[in-house]
Structure formats: structure tokens, C-alpha cells
């Protein structure tokens, strides 16, 4: 099964590399799936009654065509992943039982995707609290829609965008009772209340990712995936609000790579989009202020000495 998929993917890959990106989804109205799956309502021919019927689409089955065209799998058409049998409606009941390929089925052991370290990520996910509690049910797809996922952290140069994208992944479930209950069977704890101890909570959630506090930072990985239990979460302010902040080895490592290669002194003072009290310490300004301070004290001591000698 797995080998089949790999070969299948390989053929697909070589085939689609020749095509321009996203062309499948350019015209939703005439697309064999999107004509129904991109809209609030759909119509089909009722063969039994022999008439056209119009119905409401299940909102969870509506696909966002803009996001589809931006996603990493924009080269695919729906039926590359889903069965061809979906082209008929009503969909056959058996299709519900159809196994879907996981990320690892296609990406595992593939040299092309080595920089993403899919196997390492898989290992880390297996250690995470979600997997520990829910096992195989907590698939990668719970966080990464195969339809719309984009590698934001790797490609964006806007910290706020990276943060927002990443946090939306967590919040789409943790702040959504239905999705949360689908997995856990109980109600979701209110994040705002849990994080009450954090001042300026809203500001923090816009400027740091959930995973900054909830994962163990793994140096070799672009995005740490080992989400730990709440008892291991970062609570100490100084972990971020110091000059050797943990953000430098996680969130800011993406930006730092770029900034360092461009910048001089001024750049290191002004580079980050977010200003984080504590972390901003610039070695240049620090040295300058120490020198000025010592010079001032020196001047005073000399003056004082003369005053004592001259009894003034």
C-alpha cells in the first residue's frame, strides 16, 4: 500500500511539474467538484423524481478556493487525492470508508522534501501531548489541512504574519467547541481565562506563537512539534524578556537569518518588527552608555578630590 502510494506520488509529481500552478481551481463554477464544494448551495439532478434539486452545502465541506490556490498542494486536482467516484452525486456511501494518504505516506523518505525533515517531525509529534492522549486519531491533518497548508514560517518575512498563521492553527480548534469536542468529547477550557496571568494577553498572542511557550525548542527543526503538557509550559517572563531570549532560537531565527546578513549596527538596533522589552539590548548602545556613565563618575571623583584637598 505504502509503496504503491510512493510510486503513485512520484508519477503524479513528474506529471504535474510540467503544468502551471493552481490551474485546476481557476474556474470553480465549471470544476467537477468545486461547482458544489466552493458554494453555500449546490444543485443536482434527482434521478428518482427526475427533477433538479437545490440544497444547502454542509459548511465544513465548503472549500476556500483562494486558499486552495495558495496551498502547497495547489498542483493537485481534487481527484488526485480523493476517489474519482466522487464525480457522481450522491456520493457512494463506500467512499466514506476510503483511506486517505497521510503526509508521511507521500513525503516520508523522499529526498525532494528532506529539508522539511518530515520523519523528524513525525517523531516529535508522537511525543506530543495530543498524540499521547489521542494516538493515531490526532493526525497531522488536524493541524495541517492538506487543502490549504502554506509554509508560512519558512517563507514569510513578516513576523506578525507567521505568528498569526501559526496561532490560527491552534485556535481553530482550541477556540472552537465543535472541533475540540470532535476529538476530546468534552468542552474546551477557555484560553483567555487560562492565560489570565499573562499581562497584555492580546498583544502577546499577536506577537508570539503558542508553540513558543508550549513546545520544547529543537534546534535542527524549523518548527518544534513536540507540544508538551501544561505543567511544562513556559511561564517565566524572563525566558523571552532578556537579551538571550528563547525567541531568538525559535520565532526570530527565521528573521535573524536574513537580518544578520544585511545589517550593520543600526540594523541590529532597529531590525525587529516587534519591540520586546529586554530583548532589544544593543551591544553598541550598551557600551556607549557604560562609557559615558563611567566618565561622568570619574569626573565627579576627580572634582571631589580637589575639593577635599582645597577644603572647598
Amino acid at each position: 500500500m505504502k509503496h504503491c502510494l510512493i510510486i503513485f506520488t512520484f508519477i503524479l509529481f513528474t506529471f504535474y511539474s510540467l503544468k502551471s500552478s493552481g490551474q485546476w481551481y481557476d474556474d470553480p463554477v465549471n470544476h467537477s467538484c468545486l461547482k458544489c464544494h466552493a458554494f453555500q448551495t449546490y444543485s443536482f439532478h434527482n434521478d428518482l423524481m427526475d427533477k433538479e434539486e437545490k440544497r444547502l452545502m454542509n459548511p465544513f465541506f465548503i472549500q476556500d478556493t483562494v486558499a486552495l490556490k495558495k496551498g502547497v498542494h495547489k498542483q493537485f486536482d481534487c481527484t488526485d487525492c480523493h476517489s474519482y467516484e466522487y464525480e457522481t452525486y450522491p456520493h457512494s456511501a463506500n467512499l466514506k470508508l476510503e483511506p486517505m494518504a497521510t503526509c508521511l505516506d507521500c513525503h516520508g523518505g523522499d529526498e525532494t522534501f528532506a529539508p522539511y525533515q518530515f520523519e523528524k517531525i513525525d517523531e516529535e509529534v508522537k511525543k506530543s501531548i495530543h498524540y499521547q492522549v489521542y494516538g493515531e486519531n490526532f493526525t497531522c491533518s488536524k493541524c495541517h489541512s492538506q487543502h490549504t497548508y502554506t509554509t508560512t514560517a519558512r517563507n514569510s518575512n513578516d513576523v506578525l504574519e507567521i505568528v498569526n498563521y501559526s496561532n490560527q492553527i491552534c485556535l481553530s480548534c482550541h477556540n472552537d467547541m465543535r472541533k475540540y469536542m470532535l476529538i476530546s468529547g468534552h468542552e474546551n477550557p477557555k484560553l483567555v481565562e487560562i492565560h489570565n496571568w499573562l499581562p497584555n494577553q492580546e498583544l502577546h498572542f499577536q506577537h508570539v506563537r503558542c508553540i513558543e511557550c508550549h513546545t520544547e525548542v529543537v534546534d535542527g527543526l524549523m518548527v518544534s512539534h513536540n507540544i508538551q503538557g501544561k505543567d511544562k509550559a513556559v511561564r517565566k517572563c524572563a525566558e523571552c524578556h532578556t537579551s538571550d531570549s528563547r525567541l531568538k532560537s525559535s520565532l526570530y531565527k527565521y528573521q535573524n537569518l536574513q537580518v544578520r546578513s544585511e545589517g550593520g549596527v543600526l540594523n541590529t538596533i532597529f531590525s525587529n518588527d516587534s519591540y520586546i522589552i529586554g530583548m532589544q539590548e544593543s551591544p553598541f548602545l550598551k557600551l556607549a552608555s557604560i562609557i559615558i556613565f563611567i566618565a561622568t563618575l570619574g569626573g565627579i571623583v576627580i572634582h571631589l578630590t580637589f575639593r577635599i584637598i582645597k577644603k572647598k
Partner: peptide, 17 residues
Amino acid sequence: NLQSGSENPLIGFNTCI
């Protein structure tokens, strides 16, 4: 204290702010 960002044992970061 805020500038250096160090967690001072006498006054916490929060108190400092």
C-alpha cells in the same frame, strides 16, 4: 531592570512594570 530583562530576585518583572 526592564532594559536588562533579568528576573531580579528582589522585584519581579511584573512588579517592575
